[in-house]
Each structure stands twice: as structure tokens, then as C-alpha cells.
Simulated assay, not measured.
Amino acid sequence: MAEISTLCGIESCAIIYPENEPEPEVWPSPEKAKEVISKFKEKPRLEQNKRMLNQETLLKKRIQKAEDQLKKQRDENRQKEMSNLMFKFLSTGGISDNNVSLIDLSDLSRLIDQTLKEINLKIEKTQNQDQVEETQTKH
């Protein structure tokens, strides 16, 4: 708890009820714990609940974050699969694999469209830079 308090720059306390012990363990001291709890209770209810998490809410947030990361990773993997498929088609001169699904072809089409847009933007940017440089060298 001391490390959390130091790392986060917050006031904190801990009250732990060990099994088969008549008195709880209090950190840093019972007086300091009472002070921290009093400060907490003085805050408006909305402020108290602002960052408060119970175990269920914490787990739900962690699960959602993990699901989001998984989705992002799946999307990245799919993008790489389609890039590999595109390069395979380019190197063989066309579709020679009958195992390509309509979904793959649709995703591949989107990837090709996206790649062409990126290429066209780079061409435009390069042409604009060339025109600016050409104009500057004339003056």
C-alpha cells in the first residue's frame, strides 16, 4: 500500500481483516486511516463514486479492455493475411488458388482500394512538393 500511495501520489489506507484474528491490521496507522476515511466521507457522493470500482466493475473493465485488444489484434492479423494474399496474387499473376473465399476476395478488394488511395495520395504529395521546389528555384 505504501508503494501504491507513493507511485500514485495519493493518500491511502488499508484495513485488512485476517482470518482468525480479533483485530484488523491497519496501514499506515489507525489514526491516519481514520483521517483518510474522514476526508473521503467529506467529499460529495458523486466525487466519492467517481473512480470507485468494486471487483465486478473492475473485472468487467479489464475484460472489455482485453476484448478490445483482441479485436485490434484480429484486425491487424486479417490485414496482414490480405496483404500476403495480395502479394501472392501479384507474384503468380492472378488467382490460382481455388480455396479463396468470397469474404477473402471482398477483404482483398478493400485492401487494394485502400492501398491505391494511399499510393495516389503519396503521388499527389510528391507532385505538389516538386511543383513548390520548381517554383522556388525559378524565383
Rank of each mutant, 00 (worst) to 15 (best):
A66D: 09
K32H: 06
L85Q: 01
E42T: 05
E118R: 11
D113V: 14
T57V: 14
Q48H: 03
K50Y: 03
V26S: 02
Q114P: 00
Q73V: 01
E47Q: 07
Q114F: 12
G93S: 00
E19F: 13
Q73A: 07
E21L: 05
S91K: 13
S38P: 02
Q114G: 06
W27H: 11
S101V: 05
V26I: 12
L46D: 15
L58K: 06
L70W: 08
N54C: 06
M82F: 00
V100Q: 00
G94L: 04
R62W: 10
P22W: 13
P28R: 04
A33M: 00
K41E: 13
V100K: 01
D75L: 12
I119M: 07
R78V: 07
P22F: 12
S91I: 05
L59F: 08
E67T: 06
S91F: 08
A33D: 01
N20E: 09
K117V: 15
Q114D: 11
L102A: 13
Q79G: 11
P18C: 02
K88D: 15
A33S: 05
K50G: 01
L85V: 03
I16Q: 10
N54K: 05
S83V: 07
L58F: 08
S38N: 09
E23A: 09
K43M: 08
Q73P: 01
F89W: 11
R62D: 09
K41T: 09
I95D: 08
S96N: 12
S96W: 09
P18S: 07
R78C: 08
Q55M: 12
K50I: 03
K34N: 11
K61Y: 08
T57R: 15
S109L: 10
D68N: 14
L85W: 04
S101R: 04
Q114E: 14
F89N: 10
E19L: 10
T115S: 08
W27G: 02
E76H: 03
E56K: 12
L59S: 06
R45Y: 15
E35W: 04
K61D: 13
E35Y: 04
E76V: 04
I103V: 15
V36P: 00
G93M: 00
K39I: 05
E23T: 07
L90T: 02
D97Q: 03
N120M: 11
K39R: 13
E35H: 04
E21G: 00
D104W: 00
P22H: 15
T57N: 13
E67A: 12
K65C: 10
R45P: 05
L85F: 03
D104T: 03
A66G: 06
P24V: 04
K88Y: 15
Q64T: 10
D104I: 00
K117I: 14
L46F: 15
T115R: 08
R51E: 15
F40M: 07
